[in-house]
Amino acid sequence: MPLHVPPAPAPALRSVLTALGSPTAVREARTPSLRAAQGPATPELPLPLHVLDHITETTGPSRARLTGWRFLIRCGERAVAAADTMLTPDGWAFSHFFEGPYIRSTERALRQAESLPQTYQPRLLSVPELYMLTLWLHGERTADPASGQPAADDILVPLAPAPPGIAPHRPHRVAELLPVLTLRLTPTPAAAGLLA
């Protein structure tokens, strides 16, 4: 079934379009493929970027928070870079361009998600404690993309490169993957003794 991609806030999109139209911003970007791109570059597939902090806290469940919107920058038939925006006191603003393996991995995960029998709202969920990024397929497809927490039945697809021992592009229910991630970050009693 098709994914229900939420529209990005208009100021976030405008900030990316302004940056793409700025020769200085593109020239100073650390994205050789964007600088070398022939033809117009267009921002597509805006995905809300959430961060899941402190997954080993015992004071309550982990909380996801919206930190920005990520746009894939397409030139011709392929994505050549991505652009991140961030929320500032004055509203949405362009943050930076980048490239690397997460761009192709995001495209691959989105194609995988298109073949699932249920419609999802795609989001990105970062787990900074593991240097991990996942495609978060939220079951409430019409939910406000800026809010909400990963539900037990939502699906997480780890993007490549994934942390050692976690297979990229293998879909997991949140209820299955989050406990594994928590265990990966919780020191064992023997390791805790070594650190004392």
Rank of each mutant, 00 (worst) to 15 (best):
P2S: 13
L3S: 03
V5D: 02
V5C: 04
V5R: 06
P7Q: 07
A10K: 06
P11R: 07
P11I: 12
R14I: 05
S15P: 05
V16I: 06
L17W: 03
L17D: 10
T18N: 14
A19Y: 03
A19P: 08
G21K: 01
G21E: 05
G21V: 02
P23H: 01
T24K: 13
T24M: 10
V26R: 09
V26P: 04
E28T: 11
T31S: 15
P32L: 12
S33A: 03
A37L: 08
P40V: 05
A41Y: 00
P43G: 02
P43F: 01
P48M: 13
P48I: 06
L49S: 10
V51G: 00
D53H: 13
H54L: 04
T56Y: 02
T58D: 03
S62M: 12
R63V: 11
A64C: 00
R65W: 00
T67P: 01
G68S: 05
W69H: 08
W69Q: 11
R70D: 02
L72Q: 15
A79L: 01
V80S: 04
A81F: 07
D84N: 09
T85Y: 03
M86V: 14
L87Q: 13
L87V: 06
P89I: 05
P89C: 07
W92G: 15
W92C: 13
F94V: 01
H96L: 12
H96M: 09
F97R: 03
P101T: 14
E107S: 12
R108I: 15
A109K: 14
A109N: 14
L116N: 01
Y120K: 10
Q121C: 06
Q121L: 08
R123A: 14
R123W: 14
V127W: 12
P128F: 12
E129D: 13
M132P: 00
L133P: 00
T134P: 11
T134N: 13
L135P: 05
W136K: 10
W136F: 10
W136T: 07
H138M: 13
G139M: 11
E140H: 06
R141S: 13
R141C: 10
T142G: 00
D144I: 11
P145S: 04
A146P: 06
G148Y: 03
G148F: 05
P150R: 02
P150G: 01
L156F: 07
L156A: 09
P161M: 02
A167T: 07
P171F: 15
H172M: 07
R173V: 07
V174K: 12
V174A: 15
E176Q: 10
E176Y: 12
L181W: 07
L181Q: 09
T182V: 14
R184I: 09
L185A: 09
T186P: 00
P187W: 12
P187N: 06
P187K: 08
T188S: 15
A190N: 05
G193N: 12
A196S: 02
A196W: 02
